[in-house]
Design a protein around this nucleic acid. Structure first.
Length: 318
DNA sequence: ACCTGTCAAGTCTGG
DNA sequence: CCAGACTTGACAGGT
């Protein structure tokens, strides 16, 4: 089985490189002319795309095949008072991004922010969530990513979990097909357990992302061992192998906040657990120190399991 | 060179 | 019912 490691949004080794520079609506609306406003949006967006290209090149240089885009790549892209056409402004850079992704066969995902709630009791929240998902898929198209995935949590629990899960299911079935095909769901750390999300994903026939730390923070006695196989099975029909999220608690056992680095024992425990399944997986590292945490984890796995083989600097073959 | 406040969003808790 | 916490990274402004 092959295990690849990825990280989120920021390459800490690259100084002064960020693909998340914002334009706040406050700043935008303070500008007097349409020309100034567009010029600011254009400047920041092009800078973000240029830095994304630097990050992708950096990933390639370091054998990193898995990466999560920032959700802030295009400032004010979905703001109802702005809604600007960014596609022409970044056409050239998108071609470069597409080229890099295709050439190196990178897996790239997106994880819209927590404010995106498909099971909200507020219809306008659902509509803005759909707009955000559409926007992310527009970007995937510009990057020629046919199989890009969007990770979401189930959302709130207003009206009780059963009712809230039903709302999710109802809403999902009305979504545009391309969103249905891209959505994958993750267990969270206080409301929807791995077991809850697995059931929902099975009903909707969509893949599930297992977050190991969230499971540790919130479960109702279920053990991971029994859940892993059916969770992986939700990926059977998919282009990609299953992916999991890994993080370690900041201070104490069930601390929901993420630590700077990954505790290697957390990772080794899981790898030992799933080894009998002989299943390729992609591991998204969610640590404050981003790519640095990836390098440290890989290094510590190599020390702890010296007999394991590596296909390149970050790809494990066991 | 550092620290603090601001921005943007939705949900949930505590008063 | 409403204020504040939760969360995140970038950046502006003050010291």
């Amino acid at each position: 089985m092959k295990v690849r490691f990825g990280y989120v949004a920021i390459a800490m080794r690259l100084d002064k490189v960020t693909s998340s520079s914002p334009v706040t609506y406050k700043k935008y609306s303070s500008l007097d002319s349409e020309r100034e406003r567009l010029s600011l949006l254009k400047k920041v967006t092009q800078s973000n795309l240029n830095d994304l290209i630097k990050i992708l090149n950096y990933n390639i240089e370091n054998d990193i095949h898995f990466y999560r885009l920032t959700s802030k790549l295009i400032p004010l892209a979905t703001h109802q008072e702005v809604l600007w056409d960014y596609s022409k402004v970044i056409q050239k850079q998108c071609e470069e991004v597409a080229h890099l992704i295709q050439k190196y066969n990178m897996r790239i995902d997106a994880h819209p922010d927590q404010f995106n709630v498909l099971n909200s009791v507020n219809e306008s929240v659902i509509q803005s969530t759909i707009a955000t998902l559409e926007h992310q898929l527009d970007l995937f198209e510009l990057f020629k990513m046919e199989h890009g995935k969007l990770v979401l949590h189930v959302g709130g629990k207003a009206g009780g979990k059963e009712a809230a899960l039903d709302r999710f299911e109802q809403t999902f079935r009305t979504l545009p097909t391309r969103i249905q095909q891209a959505l994958i769901l993750e267990n969270d750390d206080k409301t929807y357990s791995a077991k809850d999300v697995l059931g929902l994903c099975q009903r909707l026939q969509i893949p599930m992302v297992l977050d190991i730390h969230h499971h540790r923070c919130y479960h109702e006695g279920e053990c991971l061992e029994a859940l892993v196989e059916p969770i992986f099975k939700t990926w059977d029909a998919d282009f990609w192998p299953p992916k999991i999220h890994v993080s370690s608690p900041k201070e104490f056992e069930n601390d929901r906040r993420h630590a700077d680095f990954i505790n290697v024992e957390d990772m080794l425990g899981f790898l030992d657990l799933i080894k009998p399944l002989n299943q390729d997986i992609d591991v998204m590292i969610e640590a404050k120190q981003k790519d640095l945490a990836l390098y440290r984890l890989v290094h510590e796995i190599k020390q702890a399991r010296p007999h394991w083989q590596w296909l390149d600097h970050t790809t494990l073959e066991i």
